[in-house]
Amino acid sequence: PSTCARCQNFVVSAQHRPYWLEQVRRSEMLLDEPALPLQTLRIVRARMNEARGLLRALGSDTGEETDHA
């Protein structure tokens, strides 16, 4: 998902909301794991922030597509 999100052709719509919500949930669970290496924590936080950003960009469930370049 991170690679695709940087593509100029990347489009996300309200139908993708469950996927990105699950990505945030999984990231939060990983961050609760004790003794994760610092590098892993950085990657997980970055992916979680990316997913949260996409969810914010979706805003309300209007069904409109949002283009992310």
Score class of each variant (00 low, 15 high):
C4W: 02
V24L: 07
V12R: 01
V11M: 01
R42K: 14
A46L: 12
R26I: 11
V11H: 01
A5G: 04
L54E: 06
C7E: 09
G59I: 05
G59V: 07
T3N: 00
T62A: 11
S60Q: 14
Q23S: 08
V24A: 02
P34W: 09
R45Y: 15
D61R: 15
T40R: 08
A51M: 11
L54M: 15
L38D: 14
E33P: 12
P34R: 15
I43F: 07
S27C: 13
S13T: 09
R47M: 12
P1C: 00
I43Y: 02
R26A: 11
D61G: 11
T40S: 14
E22G: 00
P18M: 00
E33M: 12
T3W: 03
L54F: 02
W20N: 04
R52C: 11
P18Y: 00
Q23I: 08
A5W: 01
D32M: 15
L36C: 13
R6C: 15
V24P: 01
C4R: 03
M48I: 09
V44I: 13
F10A: 02
E22Q: 07
G59L: 05
L41K: 11
S27A: 14
E50S: 09
R26K: 13
H16Q: 08
A14T: 14
A46E: 10
P37R: 15
L38Q: 10
L41Q: 14
D61K: 14
T40P: 01
G59A: 07
Y19M: 04
G53D: 01
N9R: 06
C7A: 02
F10L: 02
A14E: 08
L21W: 10
S13D: 06
L55Y: 11
F10D: 03
L31Q: 03
R26W: 15
S2N: 05
S27Q: 01
V44Q: 05
S13L: 07
A5H: 01
E50N: 06
Q39G: 06
N9P: 10
S60W: 11
A35D: 08
V11F: 04
E28S: 06
